[in-house]
Simulated scan of single mutants.
Amino acid sequence: MPSGPLDPRHAVVVGAGPGLGAAVARRFAREGFALTLVARTPQTLDPLAAELRAGGVAVTTVIADAADPVGFRAALLEVADRVTPAVVVYNVGLVAADDLLEASAEYLLDALAVDVVGAVTTAQVLTPGMRAAGAGTFLVTGGGPGLVPDPAHASLTLGKSALRAAVTVLHEQLAPAHVHVGSVTVVGVIAPGTSLDPDRIAEHYWRLHSEPEGAWTVDVVVDGS
């Protein structure tokens, strides 16, 4: 059940590691948001949380692994019991070179848990409060293999393709409740100082959240080629 009224200045960033997740967290922090940061390890979370807190940002950290569906859902339910966020960002993906003809079923299931099932679980747990409030933004990070299949990254291709479809479905389901669902699809390798600099990409998440209802974008493609 939703924890209470929607907090218009609270964002949850799932996958708040170094790179894009950190950049997204910093971008919302600059707009005065308190943050709940979710990642697999304290080693990932603690430096970012310390940096943000030093700048006066209210930060809560949560350890959760999307590869563990049961534990992941339990951790998110604790978040939902504490806050109804205005913004949720799912920025998680398993980027690995693999072969569809050689990958085991167990490996593919684990990859799909991270790439797409975790995003759906996050929506299931954290958007009910948004629906009750009649407002909110749910964003995910897509990838180039979701647009053009990449045989060298087979599991990521399956995951990002399924994630793209999930975003379309979730948008259709949640838009009538005034909840904006969208994705930022990054084509290429994210790296500071390039056209796919994390800070530049993070700006798209803020723009999607800022779009007025009636002019909502479902997917923004950021192509570094």
Rank of each mutant, 00 (worst) to 15 (best):
M1K: 14
G4I: 01
G4E: 04
P5R: 10
L6T: 03
D7W: 01
V13L: 12
V14K: 01
G15V: 07
G17F: 10
L20Q: 14
G21P: 12
A22I: 07
R26T: 04
F28E: 00
R30S: 11
A34Y: 01
A39N: 11
Q43N: 14
T44E: 14
L45D: 04
L48N: 03
L48A: 05
A49M: 01
E51L: 02
R53E: 15
G55Y: 13
A58R: 15
T61W: 02
A66N: 09
P69Q: 08
G71P: 05
A74D: 11
A75P: 02
P85I: 01
P85Y: 04
A86K: 11
V89L: 07
Y90H: 11
V92P: 10
V95R: 11
V95Y: 13
A96G: 01
A97R: 14
D99Y: 07
L100N: 00
L100H: 06
L100R: 00
Y107D: 10
Y107G: 00
V114G: 03
V117N: 09
V117M: 08
V117Q: 11
V120F: 15
V120Y: 14
A123H: 08
Q124L: 15
V125P: 07
T127V: 11
G129M: 09
G129T: 08
M130V: 05
R131T: 11
R131W: 01
A132V: 08
A133L: 11
G134M: 03
G136N: 04
F138C: 05
F138N: 03
L139G: 06
G143F: 02
G143C: 06
G146K: 03
L147N: 09
H153F: 15
L156I: 12
L156V: 12
L158N: 07
G159L: 05
G159F: 05
K160Y: 05
L163N: 02
V167L: 09
T168M: 08
V169I: 13
L170S: 06
H171N: 10
E172M: 12
E172D: 14
Q173T: 06
A175S: 15
A177F: 12
H178Q: 15
H178S: 15
G182S: 07
G182K: 07
G182M: 04
G193K: 13
E203M: 11
E203R: 15
H204K: 08
Y205N: 00
Y205P: 01
H209G: 02
S210N: 13
P212F: 01
A215C: 06
A215T: 10
W216L: 10
V221S: 04
V222N: 02
S225Y: 09
S225F: 07
